[in-house]
Amino acid sequence: MTRAKTKRRGLHQIALAALFTVGNTLLRFPWKNTGAGISISFPVSAIAAVCAVALVYPAAGKLLRAPFRKRIPRMIAAGVFCAAVSAVSLFCAARCASDLLAFFGETLLPRGTEVPFSALFLAAAVCLARAPRRSTDGFALIVFFASCVAVAVLFLRGAPQFRAEYGAVDFSVFSGADVLSGTLWAEVLLPMAPLAVYFGVTTPRRKGKSVRSPVFGTLAGVGILLVCVLQTLLTFGAEYAAALSYPYSRAVRVVSVGQYAFRPEILSYLLDYSACLFRTAVCFASVRRLFGRFLPRAAKWVPALLGLGVFIYLYLR
């Protein structure tokens, strides 16, 4: 790959990783029942997870790329690893789709359209998972820029509503236990597994440099989350925000372009939707690639089967 192509590909990967990191985290931001200290411990643990992933995923990539057809121990290790990561990916995808459906069901969807919406959403995720890398990457880049603009516009428009006193977070509520809470593990560390696999298996190996894009992308995603969390915090304060469902969405609804003009909250739905779409699609794609190491011909059907499985799970739920 030429240097120019590598640079372009890096930008796409950053966009993809950023959107993946946002995922359904904003919808499921672990504020409720955990107190205001979560606003600090979340980004801290996210950065810690990124560092862990940066160490783990090259090894995962090496394990998965190396030939193991006649090396039984390596094949077993790879198989166990693949099964574990596939389970995590499926769990993340199902949670993501479920959260988006719950959020849209409460805010956007007309009555009775949850089932067709979830079907179409999962179909779009499956198409993205099966699409060539360049298509998914290109889509991610376009959507990432649009989402960044949306978040920035909402932040700037919402600035007149901010109260400086809400910005003073009480550090005494921050405790080490928060870092280890199950919520943070589920939101931060687990989703890194499918992301690491996705990049580890699909990115050409360049010493030290193949880690850069997903790491930067994850940091960019954390940055977006921080801006959204900051907006929520400065608008409502930590305690009131904790009492709301989907606090960022409520914070954005407060933003208005003048008294009589429309509310730009419509822009926030773009971020929520696209982030969930990409997280679901990358989870499906990572399972497909893992399967592809063992059953190359059957691998192309994996995203469709996963989509169907998640749809059934959503319907039964």
Partner: peptide
């Protein structure tokens, strides 16, 4: 499906 339908349409 309202705005959700528009988002799905643009995605597809």
């Amino acid at each position: 499906m309202g705005l959700a339908g528009c988002l799905i349409g643009l995605t597809l």
